[in-house]
């Protein structure tokens, strides 16, 4: 590590620690009222053995939604992007459809989804729609990034459309797709949580909203903290992957 980098790392660490200390102090001295608990209280609450099964169940349910939404949404977005790349005339129509679906407020999709599927299917579907949007946008632009020289080469070598897509366009799009993998992590969580707000029978979102309504302050903050830490870790992991892909592909 260069000294500049290690310096900025240390500064950043100090920033995060200061933030956590501020959280603790504001909570301890009630600077923001009774609904802001100190960090230590939240951590103690989180690690209370009696509460563990509650958190475990909710976390498992929400993570399942996030996982299903992420994988299906990502795959769907990619496939749709490939279709619109391979069949140029369908591209404008698909672009609009994706944009319109993205513009619908996710809570407004919930009643439709509850009818079409079920209340418990709503979180993964909303999550998947959000993730699919990011993948579609990133992949359609990534698939067009191959350089003119490479394109000419494939024409001269008589490559078919499909093999150009698979051997040139898709590899060129991998860095953009890796970025989408990273950027869609918080979106997957938002989708799952909002989906649960509308009427799932379990999950962190349900925990958050019922804790809000019943003034269970430590529970509310704990559930939010779990969600935030999970999203942050997954984001960090995919940032690493993104860097690896970028290094490998150029």
């Amino acid at each position: 590590m260069t000294s500049a980098r290690s310096q900025s790392f240390v500064l950043g660490l100090i920033g995060v620690v200061l933030f956590l200390i501020a959280w603790e102090v504001i909570g301890t001295y009630r600077l923001a009222g009774l609904t802001w608990p100190p960090l230590s209280t939240v951590l103690v609450f989180l690690t209370t053995p009696a509460k563990l099964p509650l958190f475990e169940r909710a976390t498992a349910a929400s993570f399942a939604s996030v996982g299903i939404g992420y994988v299906c949404g990502g795959a769907g977005g990619l496939v749709l992007a490939l279709v619109s790349h391979l069949i140029a005339p369908v591209r404008p129509g698909l672009d609009r459809l994706v944009a319109v679906i993205h513009a619908i407020p996710s809570i407004a999709l919930a009643p439709l989804l509850i009818v079409l599927a079920s209340a418990d299917a709503t979180p993964p579907v909303i999550s998947g729609l959000g993730v699919g949007y990011v993948f579609y946008v990133a992949a359609t632009s990534g698939l067009a990034t191959a350089g003119a020289a490479h394109r000419d080469l494939f024409v001269v070598l008589g490559a078919s459309r499909l093999s150009t897509a698979l051997r040139l366009d898709l590899p060129s799009a991998l860095p953009a797709i890796a970025s989408a993998m990273k950027l869609s992590v918080p979106i997957a969580f938002i989708g799952a949580i909002i989906g649960e707000w509308f009427g799932a029978s379990r999950g962190l979102g349900l925990l958050i909203v019922s804790a809000m309504q019943n003034f269970q302050i430590p529970l509310l903050w704990s559930a939010v903290l779990i969600t935030a830490v999970a999203s942050l870790s997954m984001f960090a992991l995919f940032s690493l992957l993104e860097r690896l892909v970028q290094e490998r592909m150029r």
Binding site: A149, P171, R250
Partner: peptide, 9 residues
Amino acid sequence: FQDHALLPW
């Protein structure tokens, strides 16, 4: 061509 156009990956 002048641009070798090798695939970097």
